[in-house]
Simulated scan of single mutants.
Amino acid sequence: MQAPDLLHRNPGTVQAGVRVSGLHMVFRDAKHAEVTALQEVDLEVPAGQFCVLLGPSGCGKTTLLRCIAGLESPTAGTILVDGQTAVLDGRVVLETQNRPVGMVFQSYALWPHMNVAQNVAYPLTTGPRGARPAKAEVQRRVAEVLEKTRIAHLAERRIGQLSGGQQQRVALARALVAGNSVVLFDEPLSNIDAKIRENLRAELKAMQEEWGFTAIYVTHDQVEALDLADQIVVLDHGRIVQTGTPQDIYFRPMSRHVADFVGTSNLIAGTVLSQAADRVGLQTALGRVDVPGPPGIGPTALLMTRANDWWLQPQDTSARDGWKGVVKARHLLGAYTEYLVEVGELTVRIWDRYHEWGGPGAGVVTGFDADAAWVVPDGG
Results as ranks from 00 to 15, higher is better:
Q315D: 14
T62Y: 06
A373V: 11
Q275A: 14
K324R: 15
Q208R: 06
S21T: 10
F368S: 06
L38Q: 00
I350E: 11
L64G: 04
H331E: 15
L176Y: 02
T96I: 11
V45A: 10
G244H: 12
L88G: 03
V93H: 00
A202V: 15
V183N: 08
T36D: 06
V241M: 04
A206T: 14
S73G: 07
R28M: 13
Q283P: 07
L340I: 15
Q49N: 03
A47Q: 06
V20C: 12
L226F: 14
P246C: 06
K135P: 07
A194C: 08
P295M: 07
D42K: 05
M103A: 05
R91Q: 11
I151N: 06
S255M: 14
F261V: 07
N308Q: 15
R132P: 08
R174P: 10
A259C: 12
P11G: 01
C59F: 07
Q139T: 05
A229H: 09
I159Y: 06
F185E: 00
V92R: 01
R353A: 10
G179H: 08
T219P: 14
T214K: 09
S274G: 10
I216Q: 04
R197F: 14
Q247N: 12
V291F: 05
R19N: 13
Q247L: 10
Q313K: 09
Y250K: 06
D227V: 10
S265Q: 04
R239D: 02
R28N: 08
S274N: 15
E210R: 15
N98T: 00
L154V: 02
G244I: 14
L172F: 13
A229D: 01
T366G: 02
R9K: 13
R349T: 13
D321S: 09
R174A: 10
R306K: 15
G334E: 06
V93F: 11
L53C: 01
G287D: 03
D230T: 05
K328A: 05
A173Y: 07
V289W: 11
R132Y: 08
V120T: 10
L273G: 14
R91T: 12
I196A: 12
W323Y: 11
R330T: 14
H153M: 06
V92M: 09
G244V: 14
A86R: 02
H355F: 09
E40G: 03
D316Y: 07
P253V: 01
Q247K: 11
K205N: 00
M207K: 08
V52P: 04
V116D: 09
A109H: 04
N266E: 14
L146D: 09
A109M: 13
